[in-house]
């Protein structure tokens, strides 16, 4: 029994008009894994993430998240997963603390003071300064907005965390700090992380498994396994100068 498979995709086909994005795509992600999803532009990395979250309807195929059919038990899936969208997607009319409390208000019945405490806790966990709580998203820098988005994603202590390009638009130091943060939270909270990224540094630093989207399918493996792959795109991706630099840094 593969009870610890938290995301299971079978025979997925997504299509926009006549354009097929994924065809007969299978994917298994186990509990506690940090999976980085890479692929060329237009190969449907974000589409895959959105499809698993139930934001896109697949043409064919089954998706199970935490053992439930993602399309039928959308509530459960939403309750037990957290998502960080590319630009944070914070609600602009609410303060950071209120943003973090939105999922709590929606799914739970907590007292005002407890919600404030928990929001402050999450703000501390993602490394934001204490005075960030009453600020509005427009008053935050890009990096802080991502941290605030992460705090909101963690608000209900999800089992799976979905990240869409978490380090895009951050400077290398900020990106490394964000990687560390995710790795630390992942260890502390025992999260499963599904991360769409292009950042080779994050891939080598925190992902224990990499899903490469090529030929409308996914190839899952470790960095070392992908290095051996003969597929031309994977070859040029993992053997390009940038990949080498990222790997050298690690060694």
């Amino acid at each position: 029994m593969d009870t610890d498979v938290v995301i299971k995709v079978r025979g997925l086909r997504t299509q926009f008009g006549t354009q097929v994005i994924h065809d007969n795509l299978d994917l298994d992600i186990r509990r506690g894994q940090v999976v980085g999803v890479v692929g060329g532009s237009g190969t449907g990395k974000s589409v895959l993430l959105r499809t698993i979250l139930g934001l896109n309807r697949p043409r064919e195929g089954d998706i199970e998240v935490l053992g439930e059919d993602a399309r039928q038990a959308l509530d459960t899936v939403q309750r037990r997963t957290g998502v960080l969208f590319q630009n944070g997607a914070l609600f602009s009319s609410l303060t950071v603390a209120e943003n973090i409390q939105v999922p709590m208000r929606e799914h739970l019945d907590l007292s005002r003071s407890l919600m404030d405490e928990l929001a402050a806790l999450k703000i501390g966990m993602v490394g934001l300064p204490p005075d960030a709580g009453p600020k509005f998203p427009s008053e935050l820098s890009g990096g802080m907005r991502k941290r605030a988005g992460l705090a909101r994603a963690l608000s209900l202590d999800p089992e799976i965390l979905f990240l869409d390009e978490p380090t895009a638009g951050l400077d290398p130091i900020g990106a490394a700090a964000f990687d560390n943060l995710i790795a630390e939270l992942q260890k502390g909270l025992g999260l499963t992380v599904f991360m769409v990224t292009h950042d080779l540094d994050s891939l080598s630093a925190i992902c224990d498994s990499i899903a490469v989207l090529v030929d409308k399918r996914v190839r899952l493996g470790t960095m070392a396994e992908h290095m051996q792959d003969a597929h031309p795109w994977i070859q040029s991706y993992f053997h390009g100068p940038r990949a080498r630099a990222a790997l050298d840094n690690r060694l």
Binding site: G124, M125, P130, E184, L185, G188, L189
Partner: peptide, 19 residues
């Protein structure tokens, strides 16, 4: 244990919840 450490660190970073 790491979870409790994480929470402790987060709180130490925020000595007071100002309301």
């Amino acid at each position: 244990a790491p979870l409790l450490d994480l929470v402790e660190q987060a709180d130490k970073a925020h000595p007071e919840i100002e309301r």
